[in-house]
Amino acid sequence: MNKRKRTGRIALALLISGIVFLTNTIAMLLTIVAIYGLARLGVIETTGGQVGLPELLRFFFYTSLVIGFLLASLTGKIILKPIKRIIDQLDRLASGDFKTRLHFGKPIADHPTFKQVEKSFNRAAEELDYTEMLRSDFINNFSHEFKTPIVSIAGFAKLLRRGNLTDEQKEEYLEVIEEESLRLSAMANNVLNLTRVENQTILTEVTRFNLSEQIRGAVLLLAEKWTPKNLYMDMQFGEHMICANEELLKQVWINLLDNAIKFSDPNGTVSVDISDGSECLSISVSNHGKDIPKDRIAHIFNKFYQADESHSSEGNGIGLAVVKKVCELHGGAVSAKSESGTTTFTVVLPKQQNM
């Protein structure tokens, strides 16, 4: 907790304590005034102009009890009003109303702690609203992308079933069916991978393996994608070992390399570089092509987000979300930079895992 937050919470505690103290003080003063007034009116018996001790204690007790209750009810409503507002807005948020926002009235809104509560709540609501919008877009886009290959497979399967086709036509139709089947498989795997890593909170199956060899293997797996674009895969790095979940980390390189290949200009270069630090390895994947707009680069690791809003390129906004989650599970991080026609994704991972 930083110093500013700690100071704000101390100030809030002092404010509430001050209100309680002030309430008690006012209750006592009003009680004394009430007793004095009752004594002057003769309601309380006096002896020689003095109020008897038993009567004084009895009236002081009952009068302070009544006045204290009334003041506590009044100040309690004032103190609990912002809390009630928070509860009401949380209920709206829980019911799915992500457009709701929290705003306190004066003078509470000027207090640093309530300012922080208001800011945090509204930021959370905005993120939920944004994620819901992306989720809705994802469902629409994914449904469309999922339906397209199914229609293609069904259509070409019907043509094959009718017969009267040349060997070239059969080969062409079978190739389309195979490609569309692989496309469906890739989309399903992405969704399953995201679900799997999101539900995983503890890193398991950690082994020591050659990270350099794993990345080279991922490049070979994607050869059918970078070969038609005549891309040069620049991998001038040495051998580096790491302790990690091999299967999960494999998804990181496949997603980052696939992304780099997809958005590279033809005849360009995709570069992979590994820097060896004292405790961490830094892996960079770069490609040359159109820059990612600065207003979108902050969102590319969000679920369902696609920087290419036209959806002209393949993808469903899941791959980079998987990359981020896997890196976090390993105690690492991933970042992106895009400028001057070069986009670079950098992954930083610890060499060892604390088990």
Rank of each mutant, 00 (worst) to 15 (best):
Met1Arg: 08
Thr7Ala: 15
Ile10Lys: 04
Ala11Gly: 12
Ala13Val: 13
Ser17Met: 14
Val20Glu: 00
Thr25Asp: 06
Thr25Leu: 12
Ala34Cys: 03
Tyr36Asn: 13
Tyr36Trp: 08
Val43Glu: 08
Gly48Cys: 05
Gln50Phe: 10
Val51His: 02
Val51Thr: 07
Glu55Ser: 15
Leu57Ile: 15
Phe59Ala: 12
Phe60Asp: 10
Thr63Ile: 14
Leu65Phe: 12
Val66Met: 03
Gly68Asp: 04
Phe69His: 05
Leu74Phe: 12
Thr75His: 06
Lys77His: 09
Pro82Val: 10
Asp88Met: 01
Asp91Trp: 08
Asp91Val: 08
Ser95Cys: 02
Thr100Val: 15
Leu102Phe: 03
Leu102Asp: 06
Gly105Asp: 15
Ile108His: 06
Asp110Val: 12
Pro112His: 02
Lys115Asn: 10
Val117Phe: 10
Glu118Arg: 13
Ser120Glu: 14
Ala124Phe: 15
Leu128Gln: 04
Asp129Ala: 13
Tyr130Gly: 07
Glu132Pro: 04
Arg135Trp: 01
Asn141Lys: 09
Glu145Trp: 09
Lys147Ala: 03
Pro149Gly: 03
Val151Gln: 07
Ser152Cys: 08
Lys158Ser: 11
Arg162Leu: 12
Asp167Pro: 10
Glu168Asp: 14
Ile177Ala: 03
Glu178Tyr: 06
Leu182Glu: 12
Leu182Ala: 12
Ser185Thr: 11
Ala188Pro: 05
Asn189Val: 11
Asn190Ser: 07
Val191Cys: 04
Asn193Trp: 00
Thr195Trp: 11
Gln200Ser: 11
Gln200Phe: 05
Thr201Ile: 15
Thr204Ala: 01
Thr204Gly: 02
Glu205Tyr: 07
Val206Ile: 08
Ser212Gln: 04
Ser212Cys: 05
Glu213Ile: 00
Gln214His: 07
Ile215Asp: 04
Ala218His: 04
Val219Ser: 02
Leu220Lys: 13
Leu221Gly: 03
Leu222Gly: 08
Ala223Ile: 00
Glu224Asn: 15
Lys225Glu: 09
Lys225Asn: 09
Leu231Lys: 00
Tyr232Trp: 13
Asp234Arg: 12
Asp234Ala: 11
Gln236Leu: 14
Gly238Asp: 08
Gly238Thr: 09
Ile242Met: 03
Ile242Thr: 00
Asn245Pro: 07
Leu249Arg: 02
Lys250Pro: 10
Gln251Met: 10
Val252Gln: 03
Ile254His: 03
Leu256Glu: 00
Ser264Thr: 09
Ser264Tyr: 06
Asp265Arg: 14
Ser271Arg: 13
Asp273Lys: 13
Gly277Glu: 14
Gly277Met: 11
Ser278Val: 15
Cys280Leu: 13
Ser284Val: 02
Gly289His: 02
Lys290Thr: 14
Pro293Ala: 10
Asn302Gln: 14
Asp308Val: 10
Gly317Ile: 01
Leu320Asn: 02
Ala321Pro: 07
Val322Met: 01
Gly331Arg: 05
Gly332Tyr: 06
Ala333Pro: 05
Val334Arg: 05
Lys337Pro: 03
Thr344Arg: 01
Gln352Thr: 14
Gln353Asp: 04
